[in-house]
Amino acid sequence: MSPTPSAPSGTAPLDSYLDSWAPAPVRDEDSLHAGPVAALSAVFDLPGSAAEAGDPIPPLWHWLHFLNWPAHSELGHDGHPANGHFLPPIPNRQRMWAGGRCEVTEPLRLGEPAQRLSSLSAVTSKRGRTGELLFVTERREFRQGGRTRLVEEQDIVYRSGRSTAQHPDKLDESAPPRTDSPWQLPLRPDPALLFRFSALTANAHRIHYDAPYCRNDEGYPGLVVHGPLLVLLMLELPRRHASGRQVRSLSYRLRRPVFAGERISACGTPAGGGAQLSIATHREAQHATAEVSFG
Rank of each mutant, 00 (worst) to 15 (best):
T130F: 01
S118A: 13
L18Q: 02
E138T: 14
V292C: 01
Q276H: 14
P238L: 09
T269Q: 15
E112G: 10
M234K: 11
R196C: 06
P25C: 11
A34N: 07
R116S: 06
T289H: 01
A199W: 01
S278G: 13
Y220A: 03
T201H: 07
L185M: 08
R256E: 06
L254V: 10
S118C: 09
N216P: 02
A24P: 11
G261Q: 04
S2P: 06
G268S: 03
S118Y: 00
G219K: 04
H62G: 07
A204C: 14
L120W: 03
T179L: 10
T11A: 09
G128M: 10
A266M: 03
S2A: 15
W61M: 13
S121K: 14
E218A: 02
N203M: 05
A175M: 14
R206C: 08
F259L: 01
N92I: 09
A260F: 03
Y158M: 10
Y17C: 06
Y158S: 05
L232K: 05
R188K: 15
L134K: 08
S2F: 06
A51D: 02
S31G: 15
G274C: 13
T4P: 08
R101L: 13
R129D: 02
R116F: 10
G274S: 13
G145M: 09
H167T: 11
A242H: 03
N216K: 15
R255S: 12
Q115D: 12
T4G: 08
A51T: 04
G261F: 04
Q144I: 03
Q94A: 12
H62Q: 08
V225M: 02
H85L: 12
Q154L: 06
G76V: 02
A82G: 14
Y17R: 04
L232E: 03
Q115G: 12
A24M: 14
Q246G: 12
S174W: 12
V224I: 12
T281S: 07
V225C: 00
A288W: 02
I90P: 06
W63E: 07
A39W: 11
Q276A: 15
S121Y: 15
D30Q: 09
E74I: 12
N203C: 01
A12P: 00
R255I: 07
V157M: 08
A7H: 00
E152Q: 12
L67G: 11
P47I: 08
R239N: 09
G261A: 10
C102W: 09
P270R: 02
S278H: 02
A82M: 12
P191Y: 03
M1C: 10
A280C: 07
P13N: 02
H72D: 14
A280S: 11
Q166L: 13
T164A: 14
A280L: 05
P257C: 00
L64T: 00
R143S: 14
P238R: 00
V247Q: 05
S118P: 01
E153S: 08
V157N: 06
R159F: 00
